[in-house]
Simulated assay, not measured.
Amino acid sequence: MTVSTRIPVLDVLRGVAILGTLGTNIWIFTDPRGPAGSLISDGPGFFETLLRTLSNGKFLALLTLLFGIGLELQYRSAKRRGERWPGWYLWRAVLLLAEGALHYLLIFEWDVLMAYALVSLLVAGVVARTDRAVRVGMAGAAVLHLVLITLLTLAGIDGDSGLSAYPAAYADQVSGRIEHFWEFRSESILIIPLTILLFLGGSRLMRAGLFTDTSAGSRLRRRLTVLGLGVGLPLNLLTAFAGPRWFFVDRYVCAPLVAVGLLAALTALLMRSTGSPRLAAVGRTALSCYVLQNLLCAVLCYGWGLGLADRFADLRPWWPPVAWALVSALLIVASGWWLRRFDRGPLELAWHWAWRLPQRQGAVSR
């Protein structure tokens, strides 16, 4: 999608989602047990539970919905150009998979890019099918997801990874990611049905007029806001304080429901305002900011860097939000500075070059 056809609201929403995912990941980076620490603590206090609940699962789900919306926009763009679908989009997915694999191996155990790439390969063709076919696919994914979450909850599994902390050396951390590949990829595998549901849901919300300034679009935004914030948020708070046993329901059922409400409420707010250029800059460089925020947190927190996770262990739960605010501020400043000089983020530029390269070579050979 070219700059001239961008939807400004989506740029801001991506910026919110990127900084929001950092709000969840910061608790992993700052865990004194190291990157193998669970997504939840053993018996967290009231304030830590509340602070974690503000972001846990919601912005990952929001980012997933936005990825589905982006998939729909790519499909529309291909149709306008008269291109075969999914066509070159599959090459985009392969590049994203390679990017995610490097991100996982070198920086962050809980990378989401690999999962997005694999699921996009699965659903790219479904987006072009009839509404009935898409609804059937969404229903099947929803049922499978709820069955999995129900079984895990009834089994009393609380989401703790059970892995021990890594040694401080960077090379040992990389080796650990290879050795414990399937453990660290377990969340991505578990939420494949949810990811399919949110991808297709984002596509269909785009088609339903979520971003249009019409009465139908306004009604859709109001209904989704009531569903997500009026129903999902109270359930989210209830499960968050109900104990570790409800971890999966909290993160993978209630939080995505809240994310739908956030998407609708923020869209309605942004359509009545001038938006936020600073957050839009983060959204326009979303891939670069996602990788950079994790790299910065790794340098700050891990033993091979400044080791602040261990040094400030006694300052939890207060220092992780401070770290989140500082890294977020740096991303906002850096993305704005970069876009005053370039039209894409640094990783986006490299990624776009790699995507166009085989197309150029094909054109030359013809």
Rank of each mutant, 00 (worst) to 15 (best):
A309Q: 14
A17L: 03
R14N: 13
G159D: 11
C297A: 06
F29P: 00
R284D: 07
I189L: 13
A168Q: 15
W182Y: 11
E72T: 09
T285F: 11
A98W: 01
A61S: 05
A329Q: 12
P358K: 01
D160Y: 08
G305K: 03
L295T: 08
Y166P: 11
T30K: 01
P317K: 02
G15S: 09
G70A: 14
G156W: 09
A281T: 05
T21D: 04
S120Y: 03
R129M: 03
L357F: 08
P317V: 09
A133I: 02
P256G: 10
Q361Y: 10
L19A: 10
L121I: 07
S175H: 08
D213I: 14
S365V: 15
W110P: 02
P8D: 08
V123K: 00
L97S: 15
E187I: 15
L13F: 03
T267I: 01
N236I: 02
A133M: 06
L349M: 08
T130Y: 06
R272P: 05
V126I: 15
A117D: 06
V253R: 01
R222F: 11
A329D: 04
A133H: 06
Y302R: 06
Y252K: 04
R360T: 14
E99S: 03
R177D: 03
P35D: 05
P320I: 08
S328M: 01
M114I: 11
R360I: 04
T239M: 12
L194N: 00
P320A: 10
T2L: 07
T214F: 09
V94I: 05
T24A: 14
R223D: 15
S215R: 08
L257W: 02
L357Y: 13
W338N: 12
A155W: 11
G37N: 14
A128Y: 00
E83W: 11
R52T: 14
A240K: 00
T24H: 01
V231Y: 03
L13C: 13
G243C: 14
T150E: 10
R132S: 08
V136A: 13
V136M: 09
S288V: 03
G202H: 11
P317A: 05
G345L: 08
V327E: 12
W85L: 01
G15H: 13
P35N: 05
L65W: 00
A280K: 04
P32A: 14
T267K: 01
V134I: 15
A268H: 13
M114R: 11
C297M: 09
C301Q: 05
A309L: 12
E48K: 03
P277T: 12
L262C: 11
F47C: 14
V299C: 04
L122C: 05
D172A: 15
R344M: 06
T64R: 01
A142Q: 15
I26W: 07
F184A: 05
L330V: 07
W351H: 13
V258L: 05
R221T: 05
R221A: 09
S4E: 12
A286R: 10
L51T: 04
K58T: 06
F312T: 15
L96T: 04
A17P: 08
L63K: 06
A298R: 00
E72M: 15
G37S: 03
R185Q: 09
L63Y: 06
Y302D: 13
L163W: 02
P193N: 02
L197F: 10
W338E: 14
W319I: 13
A309C: 10
H180A: 12
